[in-house]
Simulated scan of single mutants.
Amino acid sequence: MRAGATVILAHAGHAAGGFPATALVPVAAFWAYLAAALRLRDPGGPGWAHGRTASFGLGTLLVTAGLLRPADDFVGHMWQHLLIGMLAPLALILGAPVTLLLRTLDRRAGRRLVHLLRHPVARVLGHPVTGLLLTAGGLWLLYLTPLYRATLDRPVLHTLVQAHFLLSGCLFAWSIAGPDPGPHRPRVPVRLVVLGVGVAAHATIAQLLYAGVLVDVPATGAELRAGATLMYYLGDLAEIALALALLATWRPKRPAHRPAGSTPVSA
């Protein structure tokens, strides 16, 4: 009987340990977002677009799915990376959480937040190149060094890596096509070039993983090829979606209208 009780307790402990507490964070973030959105939709309020709420909700759902997805092998790990680091960030930033926060804060707190967004450090962090270095550079560091191997034995390090890719993915998506206010962004053609470099960087690391060349990933050849295929194709879909979000906000400047019959003044 003691043996049976021990088995039951061990099974219960395993089930409890199988649910990551971090999965509650995106759920709490969505409820906080929803409460703020509903506050703006009160009678007499300025209102808030349902599409933005749905987008942010989709982002938190993708993060939760990634955190709950088992990472028993390299394919499971890649699913986590794609959901948390590439697909969720675009949905989250299209929800315009900073704009929502500015509309619900009092005037003094709102001024402080705007001042923070205009700080020189924010200008550097908000540049697309910074986001590219953090996202693509983080991938190269993860797979070409012993870092990935270390995350397999250290749950805290694994959680920190997940947080890095979520935050850097949000930063990159926001710097490319974010609707929220922030530091002055480069022109759209420049952002498209940076995004193109990001596509090439992701494709290259995916090809290295597929071939098993230069990477430090303890996985079978079949797992490497399956994970690399996921990164190559689903990563492309995420980057195409980001490019479409950018182009949707592009408003090319029109040349100034000149009255009929007028001639340009020569120097």
Rank of each mutant, 00 (worst) to 15 (best):
M1Q: 12
R2N: 13
G4W: 09
T6H: 13
V7Y: 02
I8W: 04
A12Y: 03
G13K: 06
G17H: 11
G18S: 15
G18A: 15
F19V: 15
A23P: 09
V25W: 11
V25I: 15
A28C: 10
A32G: 13
L34Y: 07
L34G: 06
A36T: 02
A37T: 03
A37S: 11
L38K: 11
L38P: 00
D42Y: 00
R52I: 01
T53H: 03
A54C: 03
G59S: 06
G59M: 08
L61N: 02
L62S: 04
T64I: 02
G66H: 04
L67Y: 05
P70S: 03
P70T: 01
A71E: 08
F74Q: 04
G76S: 00
M78T: 10
W79A: 04
Q80H: 05
Q80M: 01
L82Y: 00
L83F: 05
A88R: 08
A88S: 09
L90R: 09
L92M: 14
I93C: 05
T99I: 00
L100G: 05
L101K: 07
R103E: 11
D106K: 01
R108Q: 13
R111E: 15
H115T: 15
L116W: 14
R123F: 10
H127N: 15
H127E: 14
H127A: 15
P128L: 13
V129K: 07
V129D: 08
T130S: 15
G131M: 06
L132V: 06
L134Q: 08
L134Y: 05
T135F: 03
W140E: 04
W140N: 07
L141A: 14
T145P: 12
Y148L: 14
T151L: 07
L152Q: 13
L152T: 08
V156M: 12
T159G: 14
T159F: 03
V161R: 10
V161K: 10
V161A: 14
Q162F: 10
A163W: 11
F165T: 14
L166P: 12
S168G: 13
S175M: 09
S175T: 11
P179C: 06
P181C: 03
P186K: 11
R187E: 07
V190F: 08
V193M: 11
G196D: 02
V199M: 09
V199P: 00
A201G: 06
A201R: 02
T204D: 06
T204N: 05
Q207E: 11
Y210C: 09
A211G: 10
V213N: 03
A219Y: 00
T220L: 01
T220S: 15
G221Y: 00
L224A: 04
L224Q: 10
A226I: 00
G227R: 02
A228S: 13
T229C: 02
T229F: 04
M231Y: 00
M231G: 02
Y233R: 06
Y233H: 12
D236G: 08
E239N: 07
L242I: 02
L244W: 03
L246N: 10
L246A: 11
W250R: 11
R251K: 13
P252R: 08
P255S: 12
A256W: 05
P259K: 14
G261A: 14
